[in-house]
Design a protein around this nucleic acid. Structure first.
Lengths: 205, 205
DNA sequence: TAGATTCCATAACGGCCGGTATGTAATGCG
DNA sequence: CGCATTACATACCGGCCGTTATGGAATCTA
């Protein structure tokens, strides 16, 4: 009945024997490698080093665990997308997006490909709420990029026939295509070819 | 012991009560919608209108069924990629690829997205031979496109800094990105924005 | 120490998975 | 007809799925 905030560790019972952040990072690695439906509870608990009841007590269930892993993915692995928006020109923004994607997707030690792409393609009807979540997050980040491109348009960076909306859709297609290729075993060199070619074609006024 | 070719229907037993081609087309629809691992035998037999033993007798097993469905997909749904190579310029080839992809992936009545992209992303370790097959077929079709672009290069269609290999990798990234977007519910209009933007940037000598 | 509370470990649950054994119906051949 | 052959229909198999019940171990408060 004490209504005073007891958010701090006034822990009562037996203390937890694992670090939830560390376990979540391990879970992210599994989802990133195998996708939501491809990752079994046995895969997850094994990688996280905990048992199934511990996982359910700490994270709720498999779906809730995925959403939390997605939060971590956005916060850590997609940080470069927020920094990219601060670049001085739209072209520099696009280059940061693409080079950042290569670093994130070809980093040895991390799984290949993009968790967002993996989670929205394939998979049966089970993971529909997963797909919906990822699609909503993607729309949010696309919105930020469109706004950045509108700013560039007003600065006169584009020819008249290029719209910010279309350019964003185009850039995202390239990024998603690179993720598909990375997941299929493309080398860093091949992905850099895509980036260099894209930049060579980037519109100038 | 008769060694004379009896390939024709010298059927002996009870005749089959379903059309294998029709059943295969139905199976393709299920794989296209749900992916290899996402498609259960119950999904398949239900859509094909046959029972499990009939499926196994006619197609071997789930994996063999998928490879045959992939054959059908390449033959029917990817026919435009072979026609595209006959276009007079590399730019026209690329436009045929992209517009054909939109028609194939946004055709109401067909599932959204590209079966190849769906089959190589996500999914656990079970479908590795599936992924390998798709990746090999993709490499084969990329090879044909690179050769077409080399021909265009010798015809002087590109500036010096654009290589056929890189251009092919770039175009495939756009196509695969469009497939990701189509699978995520993008509209035909949005995909046409991607194509129009790509074509607006296409290199000229 | 006694009780309350929280976590860990084992084992079990119903349900679906891909694949198959079994018995019966339909055809061709002699 | 009797026989071989092939396909159909039902029911079943072991195994894995995500999830949870149960009981003991570890910590807090009193």
């Amino acid at each position: 009945m004490e209504s005073i905030a007891t958010a701090c560790s006034a822990v009562k019972g037996r203390p937890r024997e694992f670090c939830t952040e560390q376990a979540l990072a391990a879970a992210l690695g599994v989802f990133w490698t195998k996708g939501y439906e491809g990752a079994s509870m046995a895969d997850l608990t094994s990688a996280m080093g905990i048992t199934k009841p511990s996982l359910y007590a700490a994270f709720g269930n498999k779906e809730a665990l995925f959403h939390k892993a997605l939060d971590l993915y956005e916060a850590e692995k997609l940080a470069y997308t927020r920094e990219a928006l601060n670049q001085p020109t739209a072209r520099a923004v696009a280059e940061c997006f693409m080079r950042g994607a290569i670093n994130a997707q070809c980093n040895s030690g991390s799984p290949k490909g993009c968790l967002g792409v993996i989670s929205t393609t394939a998979c049966g009807s089970e993971g529909q709420s997963i797909k919906d979540d990822v699609i909503a997050r993607r729309a949010s980040s696309q919105k930020a990029l469109v706004e950045r491109f509108e700013q560039a348009q007003q600065a006169g960076e584009f020819p008249a026939h290029i719209t910010p909306q279309a350019l964003c859709q185009y850039l995202y297609a390239i990024l998603q295509g690179m993720a598909v290729q990375a997941g299929s075993g493309a080398t860093r060199t091949e992905l850099e070819q895509v980036v260099d070619t894209s930049l060579a074609m980037w519109p100038t006024r």
